[in-house]
Design a protein around this nucleic acid. Structure first.
Length: 484
RNA sequence: GGCCCCUUGGUCAAGCGGUCUAAGACACCGCCCUUUCACGGCGGUAACGGGGGUUCGAGUCCCCCAGGGGUCACCA
């Protein structure tokens, strides 16, 4: 068997979508699992909507996700160029071949005409396909149209009574009748080929052995098969993976919230988490473990285990996965990852003043509370904000036996710093006062932070240091007296 | 509307004719752990869309219906 070669071929008409990312991922997984190669091709034949910025953005997203390819628009290879608009002369040769053999023909119909035709067909309930009006124009008629200055499109003449069969690697055998397909345009009037045409030429020339793409392309496949046949080209294998749906079971769109990879990146989702999550959407490993590193997924990935049914994007599960990955982060890693979010927050100035030790102490103290990295902004507030009291804390502090506890805590406060020392000090106090741990920890927590819950108390005390801790304690003691 | 695809708990899903009185995960609920919140541990609620076949036996195979989705563009 030939070496496996797959491709991901996005259109640079917007940021990389979740669905596109998953298609890319499955191609990547299939390639790496089988020791094959991945090509990144840019399908920019829609001149109006394609933009170079999007191309860069897509590549950036792909890299961020952790995907790599062997050749493509940014990596020179033997089958370039990899941008379709740079391959126009290549398509032209095949167009000519089709035209000369009569398998394609010029179509002079205007868009208005076609639109009207379509509407009429829709209204009458008939099959919506091109009427074939320009199918058999005489040379004279064609010359007349050209003379009028009309720029024709080129249509592919779909053979009659053919059956196109796809042995899809995930869906099994699917067949289409050619009679249900109207002659379709392969070259637009501006000379740019359309998707269904260019994709065939490119996949063949680039040596693609397996076309893995979203299910929305399944009904395009017979058109492409017709072109393979007309040009006597060898067909690749096909695998159509199911769509990703929003929570309302509709195709994912903007109104479902964040749909581009960039947005998830900005919100602070880790690439490993997205990689893992996307892989689990439509594919499942044999074992029961679901938290899998990229390498493990590559190892286990096969098309046989790809599901046919569409999958709803489950943000809850992504959140859970992301949290799992964040929990595994070490201080240094977390500190780095979280930095941009803090720099972007109101705490930036204070954070700049912190030494590495304090900074790490703080982020590690809240690490297990983070669902996404951006949560750091809220989580860190208790360390950096001034002392204000939540109602519940106020209530607790107003209880009878709280004051003595706070005073004793303040008296014994030394010049310590490490978290462990604070912790053992608090434990010791608990024993000496013959109180339940809760009756020591909670008053102190409320007095120092103004809140009934938050990060680990010893970490906070250690972070503030004895001066700030004393200051907060004194303030609270005064407040308590005032409240009485 | 034509064609095509899909259909196991709220969600992701395992299952590929008997071991299914149907796994696991997320979410939810409860208990435990605990200085709070979280984390973690344990447990619980919850599903084979409907109807016909085939078969000794069907979630698993076939047909019909229903529902959902995709596609029918000079968009990809």
């Amino acid at each position: 068997m030939d070496k496996i070669k797959v491709r991901f071929a996005p259109s640079p008409t917007g940021p990389l979508h979740i669905g596109g990312a998953r298609s890319a991922l499955f191609n990547y997984l299939f390639a790496t699992h089988n020791g094959g190669e991945l090509v990144l091709r840019i399908e920019d034949t829609d001149l109006d909507r394609s933009r170079r910025e999007y191309e860069d953005e897509i590549i950036d997203s792909l890299h961020w996700l952790g995907l790599k390819w062997n050749e493509g628009v940014d990596i020179p290879g033997p089958n370039g160029p990899y941008r379709q608009t740079e391959r126009l002369d290549i398509y032209a040769k095949y167009t000519l071949q089709l035209l000369e053999s009569g398998q394609a023909y010029y179509c002079f119909c205007s868009e208005e005409e076609l639109e009207a035709e379509r509407k009429a067909l829709l209204a009458s309930g008939e099959m919506q396909k091109y009427s074939g009006k320009c199918r058999s124009l005489s040379d004279a008629e064609k010359a007349a149209k050209f003379a009028q200055g009309i720029k024709p499109a080129i249509r592919f003449r779909v053979p009659e009574h053919e059956e196109y069969v796809v042995d899809d690697l995930v869906r099994g055998r699917v067949s289409f009748a050619s009679d249900d397909i109207g002659d379709f345009i392969i070259v637009k009037s501006d000379g740019i080929p359309t998707y269904n045409f260019a994709v065939v030429i490119d996949d063949v020339l680039m040596g693609i052995t397996h076309v893995i793409r979203a299910e929305e392309h399944l009904s395009n496949t017979p058109r492409q098969l017709a072109i393979y046949d007309a040009l006597k080209l060898k067909r690749p294998e096909f695998a159509h993976i199911s769509l990703i749906l929003g929570s309302d079971r509709q195709k994912m769109s903007k109104r479902h919230g964040a749909t581009s990879l960039i947005q998830y990146r900005q919100m602070g989702y880790l690439p490993e988490a997205l990689f893992n999550f996307l892989a689990l959407l439509g594919w499942s490993p044999e074992g029961e473990e679901e938290i899998l590193a990229p390498a493990e997924i590559m190892n286990a990935f096969t098309l046989e285990r790809v599901a046919k049914s569409p999958a709803v994007f489950d943000l809850d599960k992504l959140n859970w996965l992301n949290q799992q990955y964040i929990k595994k982060l070490e201080a240094g890693e977390l500190a780095e990852l979280v930095k941009p979010y803090l720099e972007d927050s109101v705490w930036n100035e204070q954070i700049l003043k912190l030494d590495q030790e304090h900074y790490n102490l703080m982020v590690m103290a809240v690490r297990d509370h983070l669902v996404a990295l951006s949560d750091i902004k809220q989580e860190v507030e208790v360390f950096l904000a001034g002392l204000t009291y939540e109602n519940e804390a106020k209530q607790l502090l107003s209880e009878e036996d709280v004051l003595p506890v706070l005073e004793v805590f303040g008296d014994g406060l030394g010049e310590f710093m490490p978290v462990d020392e604070v912790k053992s000090y608090l434990k010791r106090l608990t024993k000496e006062l013959k109180l339940k741990p809760k009756n020591v920890f909670m008053p102190v927590r409320c007095a120092l932070s103004g809140r009934t819950h938050g990060p680990d108390l010893p970490s906070m005390v250690s972070f503030w240091g004895c001066d700030e801790t004393r200051r907060r304690l004194q303030h609270s003691i005064e407040m308590i007296k005032e409240w009485r």
